[in-house]
Amino acid sequence: MKRLLYFAFMLYSCGAAAFDGTPTFSKTVAGVGHTLTLSHWTLNTKGIPSFEYVYVQHTTSCQFRLAGRVDGITEERDGKTMLEVYNPQNDDGGAATQVIMFFDDTVTITLPYQGHLRDVGISGTLTAAQRAQVCTRPKNNKLSIEFRK
Rank of each mutant, 00 (worst) to 15 (best):
T24G: 11
V107Q: 07
I100G: 05
K27T: 15
V29P: 01
Y55C: 08
K139V: 00
H34K: 05
T37Q: 11
T74Q: 13
G31P: 01
F19L: 07
E146W: 13
A8Q: 11
I73K: 14
K149R: 13
D20Y: 11
R3L: 14
C14W: 08
N90V: 00
P112V: 09
F147T: 01
R3V: 06
T24V: 10
D20K: 08
G68W: 11
R65F: 04
I48G: 15
S50N: 08
N141V: 00
F147C: 03
T59E: 01
G124D: 08
M101S: 08
A128T: 01
A129T: 13
G21T: 15
H116C: 04
L4H: 04
Q98S: 12
R148L: 01
D71Y: 05
S13W: 02
Y53W: 06
L143M: 02
V99I: 13
T60E: 07
L117G: 09
G47A: 11
S39P: 05
E76G: 07
G15A: 11
G121K: 10
R131S: 11
G124E: 09
C62L: 04
S123G: 08
G21A: 10
P88D: 09
L117W: 14
V56K: 09
D71Q: 09
Q98F: 02
T81C: 00
R65S: 12
M101V: 02
G115L: 11
A67N: 08
G79V: 09
R131A: 10
H34S: 14
L126N: 08
G72E: 12
D105S: 03
N87I: 03
L83A: 05
D105M: 01
W41M: 07
V54G: 01
P23N: 09
L4K: 14
K46S: 15
T22D: 07
T42K: 14
S144P: 01
K149G: 14
F147Q: 02
S123P: 00
G79A: 08
V85S: 12
N140L: 05
S13F: 09
F9M: 06
F19G: 00
K80M: 12
K27Y: 00
V70F: 09
